[in-house]
Design a protein around this nucleic acid. Structure first.
Lengths: 345, 345
DNA sequence: GTGAAAGCGCTAACAC
DNA sequence: GTGTTAGCGCTTTCAC
């Protein structure tokens, strides 16, 4: 901390100024300064200008904490995702950040590690900051989480899924349908014996739903029950490769694999190469997530594209409208998904 | 918001309780409650127990905002990374979160998108929350950023690089040296004509430094100047594939490529497969980052492993010590890096 | 070891 | 359209 030349230090008794200083310099009350800053329309143009000038002269910055305490609302939006590494959700968060640019709202990001108990703890500590709104991933939460959220009386958006009974509003798509659609495609491609590869199926219940949709549709379409291997840890390329090696060793007749995550699918692709199984001739492969590398792999990866960025963008759009006093719109927003057919099937 | 049964709502006049309520129930003053909660040692065991009980009976949660306002310090650590999608930094953040578990500190995450101007804006808005400390990526910041940080008089950790003049403390490794080490390895493997593939070299100056180290060492080792292609956008597999196609078309004699990012390297790998260039026989390939897929690709990817998680873990360790009143330790912490040699070279 | 009292820097009624 | 007056719920001297 002993860095920084005294020369630099001199120029700035600034950042310390309080609203009262601005008020004095502008010749108005703090209430007026507060209005001029937050609801300029309520203040006469002349005063607005004087306040603006004073703010600049003092390089005044509002103390958000004081404001939040006084109003019991902070300019914060709490966001909880299951994981930030190597994840679909990063794109959603990124889209939210972009949609928030130019506003005064700040995201507070939390990582539940796919655990409802962690989520409960995060929600509790986020709420201690009186956020303006909360964004959760998924529709499954503990009773306490739901209770705390309802009590908070702020907009709450659940994401990445659908349900008829959202806490407030849910924006996403049907994970089950995403699993189902793969079957239609495999069938059209003439697959005979299906395989399924998943990861962390004990915690990632969205993957469980995709699996359910996949199996349900497979049986309905007359396929035998898919051969399955799941890895315990979170989705990884290494895990996908191992799982596929295992799967194909035990079920050599499998000719089409659905992996619940493109990262797993990438592992399958590499392992198939290693074993000399031609994709898509000998093995059809479909992933989920439309991660970027799928558009460049050899062969390119067929996958289900979830509306990763759209979820984030819509979430913020709806939130901003609500926070600006607008009515709550639809409680359920289905953004759908696409099957992106490429070379691997 | 109209969700939630009345039954649920009844049970919880709770979350509303204030410190004064706890004080009354415990028969002490709010000052004592505050002490009992934050510095239990200053309070007699008997009182401590009574306060504890009252806290539980009322399911009292401290209002962090009020505390922060009163003490001019919040239990927040501001963290700014250049990008969260598909990035090395996600692992650093994840490690920080884990190291923070069990403490009352919260990360506030910001995304500068590799821009110093964005960083400046973020720092300003984070400081309005009176964070207990700030963590930045890199050593390059605007004058304003540095000034604001020094004025804030809080611990500031810069990460992912080294410099003799950190704002406060810097934890990382030499990007230049990371570029240099690749040359030794390529030379040992008998490479003759080198290629370089980078992304976003106008903004990602860490990549620029790796590049500088790579070129400098190449010339020193007697190689001709490496052939280079860079993509304008952020590192991607698609971009890596395109860049390599371009590179090899213009310089068919290149037999060893260094990509500043494993994601780019993955694209090179796929494009080489497409063109029938055997790795490592015809083409040696080295990436940077040690992203997970490199351990599973075919062939597996040689790469430089930065201390991604270690940086995050050490950052928090040092911060917690400082925040608990400890002395500032070394101003420069070099965590080094490893060359992970695998099948692609 | 504990309490009283004075804020922290804003916002929000309400009056003018 | 603007000012006055109370707080928001804590932390922090300073006494005792």
């Amino acid at each position: 901390m002993e860095s920084g030349s005294p020369h630099i230090r001199e120029r700035l008794n600034s950042a310390r100024s309080r609203m009262a200083d601005v008020a004095r310099l502008a010749g108005v009350s703090t209430a007026t300064v507060s209005r001029a800053l937050r609801q300029p329309d309520l203040v006469s143009p002349a005063v607005r200008a004087r306040v603006q000038e004073a703010v600049e002269r003092l390089s005044y910055r509002r103390n958000l904490m004081a404001g939040a305490l006084a109003s019991a609302r902070s300019m914060t939006i709490g966001v909880i995702i299951p994981s930030i590494v190597n994840s679909f959700f990063a794109a959603t968060v990124e889209a939210m950040e972009q949609a928030l640019k130019g506003t005064d709202y700040q995201l507070m990001l939390g990582n539940s590690d796919h655990s409802e108990a962690n989520e409960e703890r995060l929600v509790a500590s986020f709420l201690a900051w009186s956020p303006a709104a909360m964004v959760l991933t998924g529709r499954r939460h503990t009773r306490n989480t739901i209770r705390a959220l309802i009590e908070a009386e702020i907009p709450v958006i659940e994401t990445w899924e659908l349900t008829d009974h959202p806490i407030d509003t849910i924006i996403g798509f049907s994970q089950r349908a995403a699993g189902r659609i793969v079957i239609d495609h495999f069938k059209a491609r003439g697959a005979k014996r299906l395989g399924f590869i998943g990861a962390m199926m004990d915690r990632d219940y969205r993957a469980v739903e995709r699996h359910a949709g996949f199996v349900e549709a497979a049986l309905a379409a007359g396929f035998p029950a898919p051969a399955e291997v799941t890895v315990a840890e979170r989705a990884s390329t290494v895990g996908g490769a191992r799982a596929f090696a295992d799967l194909i060793a035990r079920h050599p007749d499998v000719d089409a694999v659905f992996a619940t995550n493109d990262t797993l699918a990438l592992g399958v692709l590499f392992e198939a190469q290693r074993q000399g199984l031609a994709i898509p001739r000998r093995l059809k492969l479909c992933g989920f997530g439309d991660l970027e590398f799928g558009a460049a792999s050899e062969p390119r990866l067929t996958t289900v594209r979830p509306p990763r960025r759209e979820i984030g963008q819509q979430t913020i759009e709806i939130l901003l409208k609500r926070l600006a006093g607008g009515e709550a719109g639809d409680r359920v927003v289905d953004l759908g998904f696409d099957l992106v057919v490429r070379g691997s099937t």
